[in-house]
Nucleic acid binder design. Structure first.
Lengths: 210, 210
DNA sequence: AGGGCTATTTATAAGTT
DNA sequence: TAACTTATAAATAGCCC
């Protein structure tokens, strides 16, 4: 699918590996979602990038829902297998790998804390133009109608946009400062640097040079 | 990808839904594998067909390996699932859910495990849509193309929205805390107030009561 | 460094056996 | 029912910006 055919082996070039990861991750999640919707099945997808970042997708409310189902399934399967083993050999074998691992779960089952989960949120496409990113949130719902998960997601994205806005402002200020400085250098062609005072008050930038 | 374009909704015809499931499941697993190999990342994929059959793929030795990694990751983010209906009126006793978060609160031992879903909280305010305020800025231009004045204006508005989002989150938390407190009072009808500890980590709220 | 652009490869919907 | 076939929709590699 692309200009060249791809060999099924690790992409050695770090840059293009990263690019491919980003693209294909999106594609995979899209397809996972399509499968879930079209065929009305439960799908869970976990991806750990090489830097340890987790990307997840699930077709249900929460990933835990599917993982819990997996645990139950695995337990049943293990039980069936164990029964079969016993019938065959009439002896209790050593525990196989799967049943050993299953012991991890029961330990985690008691709950004394009060916990609230607000609908798992899986953002399929967090990337993109920061404005486009937020656009979809703005079309339909009122803040008052959003739940905690949505609010938190929105908060994150707003924060990201705010950071970009401020970054851009800084850029512009730097440009302006540079221009002023160059202008100043022209007037006072000295080897030492001028001081530039930038005053931020309201929307306008004021600058003075000494 | 095929003779006809596909609508992203459940395929109603059972036969073709099954055929599509079979085909797309294979395709999805193939792509999951490609992502894992090409980009050298860990991928786990779980699919439960509508008949409850489990199909799984993982890029590592065992699925448990990735799930364990997810659990570790989840300890930081904390994930718990919840059924919606029971929470409608605030508080439901649940003792057998995940307790991974407990490790984060070793000192917090409440008498009762309670889970709530804030998404269900009602009594919403009915103010105008604060998001409309910003809408016009998002339609046309990119941040890169805005000048300082526009950026500053946008910054202000974003900040205002952010404050509203956070206010709304606080409201929801207060509601939840109140509900928890009432539940607690029910169990311990004492005149003095319980302590409620609310932990905000990511999109989820964790609370413990002492 | 992420977004847009094709030329190509892939996936697959529908049809056929 | 599942295995092929084929026309077409989708994904995406390599580029450019």
């Amino acid at each position: 699918m692309g200009r060249g055919k791809v060999q099924l082996k690790r992409i050695e070039d770090k840059i293009s590996r990263q690019v491919t990861f980003s693209k294909r991750k999106g594609g995979l999640m899209k397809k996972a979602n399509e499968l879930a919707v079209l065929c009305d099945v439960e799908v869970a997808l976990l991806i750990f990038s090489d830097r340890g970042r987790l990307y997840e997708f699930c077709s249900t409310e929460s990933l835990e829902e599917i993982l819990e189902r997996y645990r139950i399934h695995a337990e049943e399967e293990a039980a069936v297998r164990k029964r079969a083993e016993q019938e065959k050999h009439g002896v209790v074998d050593h525990k196989d790998k799967q049943s050993q691992e299953l012991q991890l779960f029961p330990k985690l089952r008691s709950n004394h804390g009060i916990e609230m989960n607000l609908a798992e949120c899986t953002d399929l496409q967090t990337s993109g133009n920061p404005l486009q990113m937020i656009q979809r949130h703005l079309d339909t719902q009122n803040i008052e109608l959003k739940n905690m998960t949505e609010l938190t997601q929105l908060e994150k994205e707003m924060d990201a946009i705010l950071r970009q806005i401020r970054f851009r402002k800084t850029q512009l200020m730097m440009d302006a400062a540079k221009a002023v400085h160059e202008e100043a250098s022209h007037r006072h062609p000295k080897p030492w640097t001028s001081y530039i005072i930038i005053c931020l008050a309201g929307p306008r930038i004021k600058m003075a040079m000494m």
